[in-house]
Design a protein around this nucleic acid. Structure first.
Length: 423
DNA sequence: TCCTAGTCGTCAT
DNA sequence: CGACTAGGA
């Protein structure tokens, strides 16, 4: 789902780019995207419950590519389901079950090709699969973090706090959560399409003075999002038109004026619709995320005055700090069962390089870790002089050694952790 | 012109 | 998940 048609709507500000332009930066990854694509390589085995690590290798192709460009990847995984999405999850489960039965019948009939097509439709990314990927990443010294709830909100938090300079995903919802810079459609070579939060006003064709990010988010939500349906007959174009025509900033008043702004007579905006809209908006603004620095739960954005966490149960019910921490580390599954014993503490003693100059290259769980911060505006990825030099250095094979590279070479083997069958 | 709902592809040989 | 598209308002 996501926001239907958002990427085509933003095509004017989507720019082709390459991840090598972010050398020395941190990139946070929506792990689900890679896991889902990687699962296609071994759909039959996964459906049959056979052991396979094909999807792990698929994901590690991307990780290794990023490491080769001296980029620090942070893998972000999904945590608990939001209460509002329980129904969606149930429907997906039922759809997978249906396709599973369909595939079994087709297989009995000897229709192997059609059976595979049905099998592919019942692919499920299990927490065990996510754990295998996390273990493979941590073997390489790559940070992983499981969000308390949706990875989307967690990725946006890493973007907004300057922990990550780029977010890699296929999900257009990340734009609404307020990420600064996102790369979509990145291939295994590192080429993709970049979108920046600061350009969204151009996509709406709104003057800077009249543009707010709130307006952009309302536009998207009016066209329908995962948390709330659209008004009948309203898509992105009409929603954009409505947001251009009003200077109102109060959500309730904007919504009440929609039929007038768009000249649609038989359209009524019910009180229920408005309240649902505001709950959805709050889910984008205040969903609970995990702050790896303070090791505490926090809303994606600070609550406005007078609002308390208890008012926001739909944006993620509060959980105990230790539960959230163990979930974030990947030691606990969403049912609360212990599934691993990863302890980030021993690693913090082992860094002896020039990490004083580059504390942002440490593990996010290291007490000395510090976010790199936002990349100065306009500095990347289109800086011709730098681009040319990088190409030249690579062609000459004399790319200067980076702290990142030295760190990886001198890294001691991690203490043994429960790894299952992955070598 | 815009919205909607449905179908197809994602890997890799 | 998005891309693409036929069909309807």
């Amino acid at each position: 789902m996501g926001i239907q048609g958002l990427l085509p709507f933003l095509k004017n500000i989507l720019t082709p780019s390459h991840i090598r332009n972010y050398r020395g930066c941190t990139v946070a990854i929506d792990a689900y995207c890679w896991l889902h694509k990687g699962a296609f390589a071994c759909a039959e085995k996964l459906a049959a419950g056979e052991k396979t690590d094909m999807y792990v290798y698929y994901c590690m192709k991307y990780i290794n590519m990023l490491l080769s460009y001296d980029i620090k990847p942070i893998l972000v995984l999904d945590g608990c389901h939001l209460p509002s999405k329980k129904n969606v999850e149930k429907k997906r489960r039922e759809r997978r079950e249906l396709n599973r039965k369909k595939a079994a019948q087709l297989l009995r009939d000897g229709k192997r090709k059609e059976a595979r097509d049905a099998l592919v439709q019942c692919i499920d990314i299990t927490p065990q699969m996510a754990l295998e990927l996390m273990n493979a990443c941590r073997d390489k010294g790559v940070d992983c973090i499981t969000a308390p709830y949706e990875a989307d909100a967690q990725l946006a938090y890493l973007s907004q706090t300057g922990i990550a300079q780029v977010i890699i995903t296929e999900d257009s919802d990340l734009i609404l959560f307020g990420c600064h810079t996102i790369m979509f459609k990145m291939d295994t070579s590192g080429a993709g399409m970049l979108i920046q939060n600061k350009d969204l006003n151009k996509a709406m064709k709104l003057q800077d003075a009249h543009y707010t990010f709130d307006k952009f988010r309302y536009m998207c939500m009016l066209s329908g999002c995962d948390y709330h349906a659209n008004l009948p007959g309203i898509g992105l174009s009409k929603a954009c038109k409505a947001m251009k025509l009003t200077r109102q900033i109060d959500v309730r008043l904007i919504l009440k004026k929609i039929p007038m702004l768009l000249n649609i007579r038989n359209l009524t905006v019910s009180a229920e619709y408005i309240e649902g809209f505001i709950r959805a908006d709050n889910t984008f603004l205040y969903q609970l995320v995990f702050d790896p620095l303070s090791r505490k739960l926090t809303p994606l954005n600070p609550y406005p005055p007078g609002v308390k966490a208890e008012d926001m149960h739909y944006a993620g019910p509060p959980m105990s700090p230790d539960h959230a921490f163990q979930l974030a580390l990947g030691n606990m599954d969403i049912q609360g069962n212990r599934i691993a014993n990863f302890d980030p503490a021993p690693r913090s003693q082992s860094w002896i390089n020039d990490t004083e100059k580059t504390p942002y290259l440490l593990s996010i769980w290291d007490p000395n870790y510090k976010p790199r911060g936002q990349v100065p505006e306009g500095e990347e990825p289109t800086r011709p002089s730098t681009k040319g030099k990088e190409v030249l250095l690579q062609a000459m094979g004399i790319s200067k050694p980076k702290a990142n590279e030295q760190r990886r070479k001198s890294e001691p083997p991690l203490k043994p952790i429960k790894k299952g069958w992955f070598r």
